[in-house]
């Protein structure tokens, strides 16, 4: 297993795009979070914003780069034919997928941690200037605060699960353009479709099964009771999506010729 891990790590490390993509995850997440924090203001009368959620807003775009990284990890091999070499060297296909998943998770966790920490720091520095002060009923962001720590750590896990979901889908469909289209469609169209739901019950149901909406419940620190799912249950929904995608992708990888 160590050799396989080493092989996959070498592949990922030596592709020129990987470094840029990891840098992209961090900078895009930070930039969008900072931009969101800079545009919100809290009047002296107090406001109803969730400061933690705002300062982690960049995760909603950073996940797109995570998806590229994950899709390229497998569909890149299909487009160059490298997959045949990989499978010749590692005939056990489940191992190939497991090793890829492990490497990808490690890399995403590392980049995600940096991105999330930078975003929280940016929020802590920017938000008080926009009226998010204890005097207006908004305490300073701090990772020592339980819900904020949960939101930050959960966001890192969220990014890792998005990577696994994308890997599973890309393994199943193989073509990179179709894979990335499917992943982004699954993530970004659900929120739009929820608003079309005919009534509240439908909207709540769609919300509960949406990988992005349910998964990002982990970022909520206020109005928890009004959410259709608790934060960890929401992240569980995304984990179920990722597991299903990996399982489906793994089965297809086993059944099909490369």
């Amino acid at each position: 297993m160590r050799q396989q891990l080493h092989a996959e790590w070498t592949k990922l490390r030596t592709i020129t795009g990987t470094g840029w993509l990891l840098l992209g995850i961090i900078t895009l997440t930070l930039a969008v979070s900072a931009a969101a924090a800079a545009t919100v203001s809290c009047p002296p009368a107090g406001c109803d914003y969730d400061a933690t959620k705002i300062s982690l807003f960049g995760v909603q775009l950073g996940q797109a780069i995570v998806a590229i990284l994950a899709v390229l990890a497998i569909s890149g091999e299909y487009s160059t034919g490298m997959i045949r070499t990989t499978l010749a060297a590692m005939p056990r296909r489940a191992t190939v997928l497991a090793v890829k998943a492990a490497i990808l998770t490690g890399v995403t966790l590392a980049a995600g941690t940096l991105a999330v920490l930078a975003s929280v720091l940016a929020g802590r520095l920017i938000l008080p200037g926009n009226g998010f002060t204890p005097a207006h009923g908004q305490p300073l962001l701090s990772l020592a605060d339980g819900p904020t720590l949960r939101a930050a750590a959960g966001s890192v896990l969220y990014l890792a699960l998005i990577a696994l979901l994308s890997l599973g889908i890309a393994t199943a469909v193989r073509d990179s353009a179709v894979a990335i289209g499917s992943v982004l469609g699954l993530l970004y169209l659900f929120p739009a479709i929820i608003l079309m739901g005919p009534d509240q019950d439908w909207q709540r149901l769609l919300w509960q099964i949406s990988p992005m909406n349910a998964g990002l419940a982990i970022q909520a620190t206020t109005h928890l009771s009004s959410l259709p799912l608790s934060p960890w249950a929401g992240l569980g929904v995304l984990a179920a999506w990722a597991a299903a995608a990996l399982l489906g992708g793994g089965l297809l990888l086993r059944l099909r010729d490369a």
């Binding site: 545009t39 775009l61 797109a64 569909s75 289209g181 970004y188």
Partner: peptide, 25 residues
Amino acid sequence: SVAAVITAIVVIVVPHVLATASVLP
């Protein structure tokens, strides 16, 4: 294809979704 598809979706579809269906101010 990956870079092109993702760029196109991120510049056209994602801003619209974020602007209409998220908690963005």
